[in-house]
Design a binder for these strands. Structure first.
Lengths: 207, 207
DNA sequence: ACGGTTCTAAAACGAACGCTCTATCCGATA
DNA sequence: TATCGGATAGAGCGTTCGTTTTAGAACCGT
Protein backbone atom coordinates (compact mmCIF):
# COMPACT_ATOMS: atom_id res chain seq x y z
CA UNK A 1 0.00 0.00 0.00
CA UNK A 2 1.37 3.36 -1.01
CA UNK A 3 1.59 5.85 1.81
CA UNK A 4 0.41 9.37 1.23
CA UNK A 5 3.27 11.81 1.02
CA UNK A 6 3.23 15.45 2.00
CA UNK A 7 2.93 16.59 -1.55
CA UNK A 8 0.41 14.08 -2.71
CA UNK A 9 -1.55 15.02 -5.78
CA UNK A 10 -3.55 13.20 -8.39
CA UNK A 11 -1.76 12.69 -11.64
CA UNK A 12 -2.94 15.91 -13.20
CA UNK A 13 -0.91 18.50 -15.08
CA UNK A 14 -0.07 20.19 -11.80
CA UNK A 15 1.12 17.12 -9.95
CA UNK A 16 4.62 17.43 -8.61
CA UNK A 17 4.03 21.01 -7.58
CA UNK A 18 3.66 22.24 -4.03
CA UNK A 19 0.22 22.41 -2.53
CA UNK A 20 0.07 26.18 -2.55
CA UNK A 21 0.99 26.41 -6.21
CA UNK A 22 -1.51 23.71 -7.08
CA UNK A 23 -4.27 25.63 -5.32
CA UNK A 24 -3.43 28.88 -7.10
CA UNK A 25 -3.35 27.29 -10.53
CA UNK A 26 -6.60 25.45 -9.97
CA UNK A 27 -8.29 28.59 -8.69
CA UNK A 28 -7.04 30.56 -11.68
CA UNK A 29 -8.28 27.97 -14.15
CA UNK A 30 -11.68 27.54 -12.52
CA UNK A 31 -12.34 31.25 -12.07
CA UNK A 32 -11.29 31.84 -15.66
CA UNK A 33 -14.10 29.53 -16.75
CA UNK A 34 -16.76 30.08 -14.12
CA UNK A 35 -16.07 33.50 -12.70
CA UNK A 36 -15.47 34.46 -9.08
CA UNK A 37 -18.92 33.78 -7.71
CA UNK A 38 -19.37 30.69 -9.83
CA UNK A 39 -16.35 29.01 -8.27
CA UNK A 40 -16.51 27.55 -4.78
CA UNK A 41 -13.64 27.10 -2.37
CA UNK A 42 -14.55 23.48 -1.93
CA UNK A 43 -14.48 22.88 -5.67
CA UNK A 44 -11.04 24.46 -5.83
CA UNK A 45 -9.72 22.35 -2.96
CA UNK A 46 -11.11 19.17 -4.50
CA UNK A 47 -9.75 19.74 -7.99
CA UNK A 48 -6.40 20.81 -6.59
CA UNK A 49 -6.25 17.64 -4.49
CA UNK A 50 -5.93 19.74 -1.39
CA UNK A 51 -8.16 20.06 1.62
CA UNK A 52 -10.09 22.99 2.94
CA UNK A 53 -7.61 23.22 5.81
CA UNK A 54 -4.74 23.64 3.37
CA UNK A 55 -6.53 26.35 1.45
CA UNK A 56 -7.18 28.43 4.55
CA UNK A 57 -3.70 27.71 5.83
CA UNK A 58 -2.08 29.22 2.76
CA UNK A 59 -4.71 31.88 2.19
CA UNK A 60 -5.99 33.14 5.53
CA UNK A 61 -7.67 35.97 3.68
CA UNK A 62 -10.09 33.46 2.23
CA UNK A 63 -11.61 33.54 -1.20
CA UNK A 64 -10.68 37.15 -1.94
CA UNK A 65 -7.00 36.63 -1.25
CA UNK A 66 -7.07 33.49 -3.33
CA UNK A 67 -8.72 35.36 -6.21
CA UNK A 68 -6.02 38.02 -6.15
CA UNK A 69 -3.34 35.34 -6.39
CA UNK A 70 -5.28 33.63 -9.18
CA UNK A 71 -5.41 36.87 -11.15
CA UNK A 72 -1.69 37.44 -10.63
CA UNK A 73 -1.05 33.96 -11.91
CA UNK A 74 -3.13 34.59 -15.02
CA UNK A 75 -1.38 37.91 -15.43
CA UNK A 76 2.03 36.26 -15.51
CA UNK A 77 0.80 33.52 -17.78
CA UNK A 78 -0.47 35.91 -20.44
CA UNK A 79 2.55 38.17 -20.04
CA UNK A 80 4.80 35.20 -20.74
CA UNK A 81 2.76 34.35 -23.81
CA UNK A 82 3.00 37.92 -25.09
CA UNK A 83 6.71 38.16 -24.37
CA UNK A 84 7.41 34.95 -26.19
CA UNK A 85 5.64 36.08 -29.35
CA UNK A 86 6.97 39.63 -29.28
CA UNK A 87 10.50 38.31 -28.94
CA UNK A 88 10.24 35.73 -31.67
CA UNK A 89 8.58 37.87 -34.35
CA UNK A 90 10.62 40.96 -35.27
CA UNK A 91 7.88 42.98 -36.94
CA UNK A 92 5.39 44.27 -34.35
CA UNK A 93 2.43 44.14 -36.72
CA UNK A 94 3.12 40.53 -37.58
CA UNK A 95 3.71 39.72 -33.93
CA UNK A 96 0.32 41.05 -32.81
CA UNK A 97 -1.42 39.33 -35.68
CA UNK A 98 0.30 36.10 -34.75
CA UNK A 99 -0.76 36.55 -31.13
CA UNK A 100 -4.38 36.98 -32.16
CA UNK A 101 -4.27 33.91 -34.36
CA UNK A 102 -2.72 31.84 -31.60
CA UNK A 103 -5.39 32.98 -29.17
CA UNK A 104 -8.05 32.03 -31.72
CA UNK A 105 -6.59 28.59 -32.17
CA UNK A 106 -6.29 27.99 -28.43
CA UNK A 107 -9.83 29.18 -27.93
CA UNK A 108 -11.23 26.75 -30.44
CA UNK A 109 -9.06 23.94 -29.08
CA UNK A 110 -10.57 24.34 -25.62
CA UNK A 111 -14.04 24.51 -27.18
CA UNK A 112 -14.37 28.18 -26.27
CA UNK A 113 -14.07 27.55 -22.57
CA UNK A 114 -10.79 29.25 -21.70
CA UNK A 115 -11.06 32.99 -22.21
CA UNK A 116 -8.95 35.70 -20.63
CA UNK A 117 -7.76 34.47 -17.24
CA UNK A 118 -8.29 37.87 -15.67
CA UNK A 119 -11.53 39.15 -17.14
CA UNK A 120 -13.92 36.54 -15.81
CA UNK A 121 -12.49 36.76 -12.31
CA UNK A 122 -12.49 40.54 -12.17
CA UNK A 123 -15.86 41.19 -13.79
CA UNK A 124 -18.60 41.60 -11.25
CA UNK A 125 -16.27 41.76 -8.26
CA UNK A 126 -14.78 45.18 -8.87
CA UNK A 127 -17.20 47.02 -6.63
CA UNK A 128 -17.09 44.52 -3.80
CA UNK A 129 -13.38 43.77 -3.76
CA UNK A 130 -10.99 46.60 -4.60
CA UNK A 131 -8.04 44.22 -4.21
CA UNK A 132 -9.26 42.12 -7.11
CA UNK A 133 -9.99 45.13 -9.27
CA UNK A 134 -6.53 46.48 -8.55
CA UNK A 135 -4.80 43.22 -9.45
CA UNK A 136 -6.71 43.11 -12.74
CA UNK A 137 -5.79 46.70 -13.54
CA UNK A 138 -2.14 45.85 -12.91
CA UNK A 139 -2.38 42.95 -15.32
CA UNK A 140 -3.77 45.12 -18.09
CA UNK A 141 -1.08 47.71 -17.46
CA UNK A 142 1.71 45.16 -17.61
CA UNK A 143 0.50 43.70 -20.90
CA UNK A 144 0.14 47.17 -22.33
CA UNK A 145 3.69 48.04 -21.31
CA UNK A 146 5.02 44.97 -23.11
CA UNK A 147 3.31 45.99 -26.33
CA UNK A 148 4.35 49.60 -25.97
CA UNK A 149 8.01 48.64 -25.60
CA UNK A 150 7.83 46.52 -28.73
CA UNK A 151 6.27 49.37 -30.71
CA UNK A 152 8.95 51.78 -29.55
CA UNK A 153 11.67 49.39 -30.56
CA UNK A 154 10.12 49.30 -34.00
CA UNK A 155 10.57 53.03 -34.33
CA UNK A 156 7.14 54.31 -33.40
CA UNK A 157 7.51 57.42 -31.30
CA UNK A 158 6.57 57.52 -27.63
CA UNK A 159 3.06 58.99 -27.51
CA UNK A 160 1.89 57.00 -30.51
CA UNK A 161 3.31 53.77 -29.11
CA UNK A 162 1.59 54.43 -25.82
CA UNK A 163 -1.79 55.07 -27.42
CA UNK A 164 -1.50 52.16 -29.83
CA UNK A 165 -0.62 49.77 -27.03
CA UNK A 166 -3.84 50.71 -25.28
CA UNK A 167 -5.92 49.84 -28.31
CA UNK A 168 -3.99 46.66 -29.04
CA UNK A 169 -4.77 45.28 -25.59
CA UNK A 170 -8.36 46.51 -25.63
CA UNK A 171 -9.02 44.99 -29.02
CA UNK A 172 -7.37 41.67 -28.24
CA UNK A 173 -9.37 41.48 -25.04
CA UNK A 174 -12.65 42.38 -26.71
CA UNK A 175 -12.07 40.05 -29.62
CA UNK A 176 -11.31 37.20 -27.27
CA UNK A 177 -14.57 37.94 -25.52
CA UNK A 178 -16.50 38.13 -28.79
CA UNK A 179 -14.94 34.91 -30.05
CA UNK A 180 -15.79 33.13 -26.83
CA UNK A 181 -19.39 34.29 -26.73
CA UNK A 182 -19.94 33.69 -30.45
CA UNK A 183 -17.98 30.43 -30.45
CA UNK A 184 -16.23 31.64 -33.57
CA UNK A 185 -12.61 32.42 -34.40
CA UNK A 186 -13.53 35.28 -36.72
CA UNK A 187 -13.48 38.17 -34.22
CA UNK A 188 -9.95 37.30 -33.08
CA UNK A 189 -8.60 36.74 -36.57
CA UNK A 190 -10.04 40.01 -37.86
CA UNK A 191 -8.78 41.84 -34.81
CA UNK A 192 -5.30 40.62 -35.65
CA UNK A 193 -5.61 41.77 -39.24
CA UNK A 194 -6.87 45.23 -38.38
CA UNK A 195 -4.43 45.78 -35.54
CA UNK A 196 -1.55 44.88 -37.84
CA UNK A 197 -2.88 47.35 -40.37
CA UNK A 198 -3.13 50.07 -37.74
CA UNK A 199 0.38 49.45 -36.50
CA UNK A 200 1.81 49.56 -40.02
CA UNK A 201 0.10 52.88 -40.63
CA UNK A 202 1.90 54.36 -37.63
CA UNK A 203 5.23 52.77 -38.39
CA UNK A 204 5.20 54.15 -41.91
CA UNK A 205 4.23 57.57 -40.58
CA UNK A 206 7.17 57.78 -38.15
CA UNK A 207 10.29 56.62 -39.94
CA UNK B 1 -54.57 53.26 4.93
CA UNK B 2 -53.55 52.81 1.34
CA UNK B 3 -54.45 49.51 -0.20
CA UNK B 4 -51.89 47.69 -2.30
CA UNK B 5 -52.75 47.80 -5.98
CA UNK B 6 -51.85 45.22 -8.58
CA UNK B 7 -49.02 47.24 -9.98
CA UNK B 8 -47.56 48.62 -6.81
CA UNK B 9 -43.93 49.65 -6.97
CA UNK B 10 -41.61 51.86 -4.98
CA UNK B 11 -40.88 55.20 -6.53
CA UNK B 12 -37.87 54.05 -8.47
CA UNK B 13 -37.00 54.77 -12.10
CA UNK B 14 -39.05 51.74 -13.15
CA UNK B 15 -42.17 52.57 -11.20
CA UNK B 16 -45.27 52.74 -13.33
CA UNK B 17 -44.17 49.73 -15.33
CA UNK B 18 -45.72 46.31 -15.13
CA UNK B 19 -44.28 43.80 -12.71
CA UNK B 20 -42.75 41.64 -15.39
CA UNK B 21 -40.97 44.54 -17.03
CA UNK B 22 -39.75 45.77 -13.66
CA UNK B 23 -38.27 42.37 -12.89
CA UNK B 24 -36.49 42.15 -16.24
CA UNK B 25 -34.96 45.61 -15.94
CA UNK B 26 -33.83 45.01 -12.40
CA UNK B 27 -32.30 41.66 -13.32
CA UNK B 28 -30.51 43.20 -16.27
CA UNK B 29 -29.08 46.02 -14.18
CA UNK B 30 -27.98 43.79 -11.32
CA UNK B 31 -26.41 41.11 -13.50
CA UNK B 32 -24.63 43.80 -15.47
CA UNK B 33 -22.91 44.86 -12.25
CA UNK B 34 -22.58 41.61 -10.35
CA UNK B 35 -22.68 38.89 -12.96
CA UNK B 36 -25.00 35.92 -13.14
CA UNK B 37 -23.80 34.01 -10.11
CA UNK B 38 -23.31 37.16 -8.08
CA UNK B 39 -26.96 38.11 -8.39
CA UNK B 40 -29.62 36.31 -6.38
CA UNK B 41 -33.26 35.86 -7.32
CA UNK B 42 -34.28 37.25 -3.97
CA UNK B 43 -32.19 40.36 -4.47
CA UNK B 44 -33.83 40.88 -7.85
CA UNK B 45 -37.33 40.47 -6.45
CA UNK B 46 -36.61 42.86 -3.60
CA UNK B 47 -35.10 45.62 -5.72
CA UNK B 48 -37.86 45.24 -8.30
CA UNK B 49 -40.48 45.52 -5.57
CA UNK B 50 -41.88 42.18 -6.58
CA UNK B 51 -42.18 38.97 -4.67
CA UNK B 52 -40.64 35.62 -5.28
CA UNK B 53 -44.03 34.33 -6.37
CA UNK B 54 -44.22 36.96 -9.10
CA UNK B 55 -40.77 36.13 -10.37
CA UNK B 56 -41.54 32.44 -10.73
CA UNK B 57 -44.95 33.22 -12.14
CA UNK B 58 -43.52 35.23 -15.01
CA UNK B 59 -40.37 33.14 -15.39
CA UNK B 60 -41.19 29.51 -14.69
CA UNK B 61 -37.81 28.63 -16.14
CA UNK B 62 -36.22 30.21 -13.08
CA UNK B 63 -32.97 32.10 -13.01
CA UNK B 64 -31.78 30.96 -16.42
CA UNK B 65 -34.88 32.12 -18.23
CA UNK B 66 -34.69 35.41 -16.37
CA UNK B 67 -31.06 35.83 -17.39
CA UNK B 68 -31.91 35.28 -21.03
CA UNK B 69 -34.57 37.99 -20.85
CA UNK B 70 -32.14 40.27 -19.04
CA UNK B 71 -29.58 39.83 -21.80
CA UNK B 72 -32.20 40.51 -24.46
CA UNK B 73 -33.13 43.68 -22.64
CA UNK B 74 -29.52 44.82 -22.51
CA UNK B 75 -29.19 43.87 -26.15
CA UNK B 76 -32.06 46.14 -27.17
CA UNK B 77 -30.81 48.89 -24.91
CA UNK B 78 -27.38 49.01 -26.49
CA UNK B 79 -28.83 48.57 -29.98
CA UNK B 80 -31.00 51.62 -29.40
CA UNK B 81 -27.98 53.58 -28.24
CA UNK B 82 -25.99 52.59 -31.30
CA UNK B 83 -28.86 53.30 -33.67
CA UNK B 84 -29.38 56.73 -32.22
CA UNK B 85 -25.75 57.73 -32.67
CA UNK B 86 -25.36 56.15 -36.10
CA UNK B 87 -28.47 57.97 -37.32
CA UNK B 88 -27.53 61.34 -35.93
CA UNK B 89 -23.88 61.45 -37.08
CA UNK B 90 -23.51 61.14 -40.87
CA UNK B 91 -19.84 60.19 -41.00
CA UNK B 92 -19.34 56.62 -39.74
CA UNK B 93 -15.87 57.31 -38.32
CA UNK B 94 -17.16 60.27 -36.35
CA UNK B 95 -20.17 58.28 -35.22
CA UNK B 96 -18.10 55.43 -33.78
CA UNK B 97 -15.74 57.87 -32.10
CA UNK B 98 -18.70 59.67 -30.61
CA UNK B 99 -20.12 56.38 -29.37
CA UNK B 100 -16.85 55.52 -27.65
CA UNK B 101 -16.68 58.92 -26.01
CA UNK B 102 -20.25 58.66 -24.80
CA UNK B 103 -19.57 55.23 -23.34
CA UNK B 104 -16.50 56.64 -21.59
CA UNK B 105 -18.50 59.49 -20.10
CA UNK B 106 -21.29 57.20 -18.93
CA UNK B 107 -18.80 54.82 -17.45
CA UNK B 108 -17.14 57.52 -15.38
CA UNK B 109 -20.51 58.93 -14.35
CA UNK B 110 -21.57 55.61 -12.84
CA UNK B 111 -18.19 55.34 -11.14
CA UNK B 112 -17.16 52.49 -13.41
CA UNK B 113 -19.96 50.25 -12.23
CA UNK B 114 -22.08 49.87 -15.37
CA UNK B 115 -20.18 48.02 -18.04
CA UNK B 116 -21.59 46.11 -20.96
CA UNK B 117 -25.02 44.75 -20.03
CA UNK B 118 -24.38 41.48 -21.80
CA UNK B 119 -20.78 40.63 -21.03
CA UNK B 120 -21.01 40.25 -17.27
CA UNK B 121 -24.10 38.09 -17.49
CA UNK B 122 -22.77 35.83 -20.21
CA UNK B 123 -19.22 35.36 -18.93
CA UNK B 124 -18.85 32.26 -16.87
CA UNK B 125 -22.23 30.85 -17.74
CA UNK B 126 -21.57 29.93 -21.37
CA UNK B 127 -20.68 26.33 -20.62
CA UNK B 128 -23.50 25.72 -18.17
CA UNK B 129 -26.32 27.51 -19.96
CA UNK B 130 -26.34 27.40 -23.75
CA UNK B 131 -29.46 29.58 -23.79
CA UNK B 132 -27.58 32.43 -22.19
CA UNK B 133 -24.58 32.02 -24.45
CA UNK B 134 -26.87 32.03 -27.46
CA UNK B 135 -28.69 35.19 -26.39
CA UNK B 136 -25.36 36.93 -25.90
CA UNK B 137 -24.13 35.84 -29.32
CA UNK B 138 -27.29 37.22 -30.88
CA UNK B 139 -26.69 40.55 -29.17
CA UNK B 140 -23.18 40.81 -30.57
CA UNK B 141 -24.43 39.87 -34.02
CA UNK B 142 -27.17 42.50 -33.97
CA UNK B 143 -24.81 45.28 -32.93
CA UNK B 144 -22.36 44.22 -35.60
CA UNK B 145 -25.09 44.30 -38.23
CA UNK B 146 -25.99 47.86 -37.27
CA UNK B 147 -22.39 49.00 -37.70
CA UNK B 148 -21.96 47.06 -40.93
CA UNK B 149 -25.04 48.71 -42.47
CA UNK B 150 -23.72 52.12 -41.58
CA UNK B 151 -20.34 51.38 -43.14
CA UNK B 152 -21.97 50.15 -46.34
CA UNK B 153 -24.07 53.29 -46.56
CA UNK B 154 -20.87 55.28 -46.34
CA UNK B 155 -19.57 53.56 -49.43
CA UNK B 156 -17.37 50.86 -47.97
CA UNK B 157 -17.78 47.68 -49.96
CA UNK B 158 -19.45 44.61 -48.54
CA UNK B 159 -16.61 42.35 -47.35
CA UNK B 160 -14.65 45.25 -45.89
CA UNK B 161 -17.72 46.60 -44.10
CA UNK B 162 -18.40 43.16 -42.65
CA UNK B 163 -14.87 42.72 -41.38
CA UNK B 164 -14.61 46.23 -40.02
CA UNK B 165 -17.88 45.89 -38.14
CA UNK B 166 -16.47 42.86 -36.35
CA UNK B 167 -13.46 44.78 -35.13
CA UNK B 168 -15.50 47.85 -34.22
CA UNK B 169 -17.68 45.83 -31.87
CA UNK B 170 -14.77 43.81 -30.49
CA UNK B 171 -12.74 46.92 -29.80
CA UNK B 172 -15.60 48.85 -28.21
CA UNK B 173 -16.35 45.87 -26.03
CA UNK B 174 -12.74 45.36 -25.01
CA UNK B 175 -12.14 49.03 -24.37
CA UNK B 176 -15.22 49.21 -22.20
CA UNK B 177 -13.86 46.30 -20.23
CA UNK B 178 -10.41 47.86 -19.95
CA UNK B 179 -11.86 51.19 -18.90
CA UNK B 180 -14.00 49.55 -16.26
CA UNK B 181 -11.20 47.46 -14.80
CA UNK B 182 -8.68 50.31 -14.92
CA UNK B 183 -11.20 52.90 -13.78
CA UNK B 184 -9.96 55.16 -16.53
CA UNK B 185 -11.58 56.69 -19.60
CA UNK B 186 -8.42 56.40 -21.67
CA UNK B 187 -8.98 52.94 -23.22
CA UNK B 188 -12.40 53.92 -24.55
CA UNK B 189 -11.30 57.29 -25.85
CA UNK B 190 -8.27 55.85 -27.64
CA UNK B 191 -10.39 53.05 -29.05
CA UNK B 192 -12.66 55.67 -30.57
CA UNK B 193 -9.73 57.51 -32.09
CA UNK B 194 -8.14 54.45 -33.62
CA UNK B 195 -11.40 52.97 -34.88
CA UNK B 196 -12.21 56.24 -36.61
CA UNK B 197 -8.78 56.18 -38.19
CA UNK B 198 -9.26 52.61 -39.39
CA UNK B 199 -12.67 53.38 -40.87
CA UNK B 200 -11.33 56.42 -42.70
CA UNK B 201 -8.55 54.33 -44.20
CA UNK B 202 -11.12 51.95 -45.68
CA UNK B 203 -13.46 54.68 -46.84
CA UNK B 204 -10.69 56.44 -48.69
CA UNK B 205 -9.58 53.16 -50.24
CA UNK B 206 -13.03 52.34 -51.67
CA UNK B 207 -14.44 55.51 -53.24
C1' DA C 1 -73.02 38.70 -8.33
C1' DC C 2 -70.06 35.10 -9.56
C1' DG C 3 -66.51 31.66 -11.44
C1' DG C 4 -62.17 31.50 -13.25
C1' DT C 5 -57.89 33.24 -14.40
C1' DT C 6 -54.07 35.99 -13.28
C1' DC C 7 -51.08 37.71 -10.13
C1' DT C 8 -49.21 38.37 -5.34
C1' DA C 9 -47.63 36.88 -0.79
C1' DA C 10 -44.63 34.42 2.21
C1' DA C 11 -43.24 30.20 4.55
C1' DA C 12 -40.33 26.34 4.03
C1' DC C 13 -37.30 22.86 1.56
C1' DG C 14 -32.73 20.71 0.63
C1' DA C 15 -28.40 21.91 -1.04
C1' DA C 16 -24.44 24.59 -1.26
C1' DC C 17 -21.96 28.55 0.28
C1' DG C 18 -17.66 30.67 2.91
C1' DC C 19 -15.50 29.92 6.87
C1' DT C 20 -14.00 28.17 11.75
C1' DC C 21 -12.56 24.79 14.53
C1' DT C 22 -10.01 20.94 16.59
C1' DA C 23 -7.39 16.89 15.84
C1' DT C 24 -3.82 14.65 13.51
C1' DC C 25 0.08 13.90 10.67
C1' DC C 26 4.82 14.47 9.11
C1' DG C 27 9.55 15.99 8.56
C1' DA C 28 13.19 18.69 10.20
C1' DT C 29 15.77 19.86 14.32
C1' DA C 30 17.87 19.02 18.98
C1' DT D 1 14.50 9.56 19.99
C1' DA D 2 11.71 13.43 21.69
C1' DT D 3 9.84 17.55 20.23
C1' DC D 4 7.80 21.20 17.84
C1' DG D 5 5.75 23.88 14.02
C1' DG D 6 4.16 23.71 9.36
C1' DA D 7 0.81 21.26 6.81
C1' DT D 8 -3.25 18.27 6.31
C1' DA D 9 -7.77 16.40 7.33
C1' DG D 10 -12.68 16.95 7.69
C1' DA D 11 -16.74 17.69 10.70
C1' DG D 12 -19.68 21.39 11.53
C1' DC D 13 -21.03 26.41 12.08
C1' DG D 14 -24.53 29.92 10.41
C1' DT D 15 -26.15 31.81 6.25
C1' DT D 16 -27.83 32.15 1.74
C1' DC D 17 -28.96 29.94 -2.49
C1' DG D 18 -32.69 28.52 -6.14
C1' DT D 19 -36.88 26.56 -6.00
C1' DT D 20 -41.46 24.68 -4.51
C1' DT D 21 -45.60 25.03 -2.27
C1' DT D 22 -49.87 26.67 -0.50
C1' DA D 23 -52.89 30.39 0.29
C1' DG D 24 -55.05 34.51 -0.76
C1' DA D 25 -56.04 38.88 -3.34
C1' DA D 26 -57.30 41.37 -7.52
C1' DC D 27 -59.33 41.44 -12.01
C1' DC D 28 -62.65 40.19 -15.91
C1' DG D 29 -66.28 38.15 -18.84
C1' DT D 30 -70.72 36.69 -18.14
Amino acid sequence: MRTTTRRAAADGPDSGLGTRERIVRTASRLMQRQGYDGTGIKQISQEADATLGSVYHFFPGGKQELAVEAIRHGDQEFAAFLTQILNSVPDPAEAIESAANTLARDMRRTDWVDGCPVTATALGTSTRAPDIQHAAAEAFARWRALVEAKLREAGIDGPHAHDLAHTVISTLEGAELASQVSRNETPLRLAGTHLAQLIRAYRNATP
